[in-house]
Simulated scan of single mutants.
Amino acid sequence: MPETIWENEIKQIRLPDEEVRKASLTRWNHLAKPLHGMGALETMLARIAGIQGRLHPSLQKKGIVVLCADNGIVKEGVSQTGAEVTAVVAGNFLTGQTSVCKMAKVAGADILPYDIGILTDVEGLTKAEYKISCGTKDFLEEPAMTREEVVRAILTGMKIVKERKAQGYEILATGEMGIGNTTTSSAVACALTGEAAGVMTGRGAGLSDEGLIRKKEVITEGLARRNPDPSDPVDILAKVGGLDIAGLTGVFLGCARYQVPAVLDGFISSVAALAAVRIEPKVKEYLFASHRSKEPAHNRILEELGLEAVLDLGMALGEGTGACALFPLLDMAMTVYEEMSSFDDIQVEQYKEYTS
């Protein structure tokens, strides 16, 4: 039954309004500045206009959805810290004591954290309607999740977007917290792209050389044992993924379903975005790549998505920090778009478009 509900929801996904997007680009061209002078910010804002279906879009209410979950694969020595750190950091989202909380305050965005699969409950955060289970299994020993758990996580992600859209959120960024989730995301990335673990695996939060070797071995062996179906993203997520990745897959599907611009953070959320696009290709039209992270496979995933990151800052923090960094740029672009004089206003001849 859950999978039927999810499939019915996906059928409702529609493409953004192309006429509005084109009209927005025309408006940009009439502003008293060099044509395309603001580069990618112009095309991004035009895409947002198309998604919202209005020539004058709004980004007043911004949210960062942070999904928190633990991963059984941590027991294989693939991370520098233990699983207990997930719950500690997740709790800090409630008190504003994380990096993304500090950044979001400056960017005028709300932090929206969820316990979708932390090993222990976190007071003030854990709610039964969003929590799928207390972490995943060790995918070296058995599948990380059941198919039903993955579908429930995807539906939960979609539910979160529906609720936040009803509360007036106009754009959502994505973040995650979960020790071991660069291992699960690398494994999912390998299965989705066919690349080897050696290509798709980085140091995460700071592994030693020995730790990185172990991480690659675990992913390679885990994929061989679980043998996920490369044509079935749900099977991949169930066998080697994580609850945060599955939930974020649902968030991206939900953003497309409910017509909300979705800002990717780094490698982990980008892998979830790729899973969502493999499930429903139209999701791509709702995605915005914020930055290029230090994880070696992030660029490969962005290429697979056909997206260009706006920022390249060498960030490797997670939590939605890179996605949050894009918000002020979008706000500045919005101010130019809405308040800049046109060529007609200043009685100056408009720039002409020349093609090479």
Rank of each mutant, 00 (worst) to 15 (best):
L207P: 06
L326G: 01
T321C: 10
M177K: 03
A325G: 08
V85T: 12
K61M: 04
C101T: 01
A189Q: 00
A153L: 14
E295N: 12
L237V: 07
R27Y: 15
A144Y: 09
W6A: 14
D265C: 08
K75E: 13
M334W: 01
T146E: 10
I245V: 12
R214V: 07
T126D: 07
T182A: 03
G77K: 00
A224C: 11
P281C: 03
Y354M: 10
K159W: 11
G91S: 10
G222E: 03
E319C: 03
S24T: 15
L253M: 09
M177G: 12
A87K: 04
E217G: 11
L237I: 04
F343M: 13
Y351S: 09
P296L: 00
K284V: 14
V100I: 13
E141Y: 04
G247E: 05
S290D: 05
T249N: 06
V199R: 00
V277L: 10
V199W: 00
N29D: 15
G322Y: 03
I64L: 07
V89N: 08
D17F: 09
H56W: 10
P233Q: 00
N71P: 15
I236R: 01
L140R: 06
V20R: 06
S79A: 13
G250E: 00
V251P: 04
N71R: 08
D235H: 05
F139P: 09
L25N: 12
G124N: 11
A83S: 12
T120C: 11
A191H: 08
L172W: 01
N92M: 13
P16I: 09
A246S: 12
L207H: 02
T136I: 04
L172Q: 04
G108S: 11
E149T: 11
E3Y: 06
D312E: 06
G82W: 04
E295M: 09
I5A: 11
T174P: 03
T335R: 09
I160R: 04
R21D: 08
P296F: 02
Q97C: 14
A46Q: 03
I111P: 01
V74Q: 06
L172Y: 01
M200D: 00
Q12A: 14
A333F: 03
E349F: 10
L45I: 13
K215Q: 02
P113H: 01
R203A: 00
T136M: 06
L311G: 05
L326T: 05
L15I: 14
G124C: 11
Y130K: 11
I236K: 02
D244N: 08
K11A: 10
I213N: 03
V161H: 04
L237P: 05
G254S: 07
A275G: 12
L248P: 09
R21A: 15
I132N: 04
P281W: 01
A297C: 09
L45W: 03
P230G: 01
E308T: 12
I245C: 08
A90Y: 07
